[in-house]
Amino acid sequence: MRRSIRLKFIPTLFSILALGLLVVTGCSSNSPTWLTPASTNAAMVTNLFNLIFGVSVVVFVIVEVLLVYSVLRFRRKSNDEMPTQIHGNSRLEIAWTLAPAIVLVIVFAFTLQTLNAIEETPANALKVKVTGYQWWWAAEYPELGVTTASELHVPVNQAVSFTLESKDVIHSFWVPELGGKRDVVPGKVNTTWFRPTKVGTFYGQCAEFCGVAHANMRFAIIVETQEDFNKWVGDQKKDPAAPVSDLAKQGEQEFLKGICIACHTVNGTVAKGVAGPNLTHLSSRKTFAGGTIVLNKDNLKAWLKDPQALKPGNLMEAGKTIPRLTNAQINALAEYLSGLK
């Protein structure tokens, strides 16, 4: 008798888990989930997911109920029970071969339909060239002459197509609410596209394991109205304003005479390095260090003091790849960088 109680626990357990799922998803409205898609493509994929989810729940319930029922119903009551020795049943077996086959054919048909719909890139799409580096993303708008890093702006209701390239290892470009992943493979130019339908800031993250700081290779796509987007493009195309305060001027000198320019670009100056993020309009961005740190003067100072403490593994290492900076140098540099808008 005790055993039957234990077995009845199985369906209860699953209902608890299912309930937990609902509660938890309800609580995490700030998760970057494509359950609330923000592009036409993502919406189609979510529909396909919902279809398969429905089918799976039905199959799951049927199988688990049959399993638990058969175990409970046919539990051994006495030791000399001798059940009928049935070896099989061709009709039944054909039936449960065909049934899953038919279900899968239907699922496959919808899969094909969705696949076709999301793979066709529209001709008039806005072009963005995205390059994956260990461990940050560069973005270039070749038609607009804009280069930025880790924070991409795109207009709402406009198809955007991405060409994806890698400078080192394999990465994967993924903004869940806007569309599925596309790997970024060295030696290969991949493409993907989407048409955002909602204004907002959408979380993105590298999805292919790419080394030490893989977890910290994040980015954001900011979907905005066409007017806001045009204004952003206009701002990005300008050179940054020259530093005004003495501290900022001192910072500029530190920047331009130091090792910084070996890897970083600031338009309108001699800094033309390309191994690291373009800093021309650094302080127009909300985050830095691969989308992981909120951009403000204090965080910039902490970063310049010890980049490894904030993002372990990144290529800036005080005392190794960059010199150890004095507090005066750090203050000046942070002042200069904060002015790059």
């Binding site: 199959v59 869940p176 599925g180 596309r182």
Partner: peptide, 18 residues
């Protein structure tokens, strides 16, 4: 059953590597 989600290419684009 969860394998079927991953076999459906467009859904896999979202779920793979998660």
């Amino acid at each position: 059953l969860t394998g079927i989600f991953l076999a459906a290419v467009p859904v896999d684009f979202q779920l793979t590597d998660t």
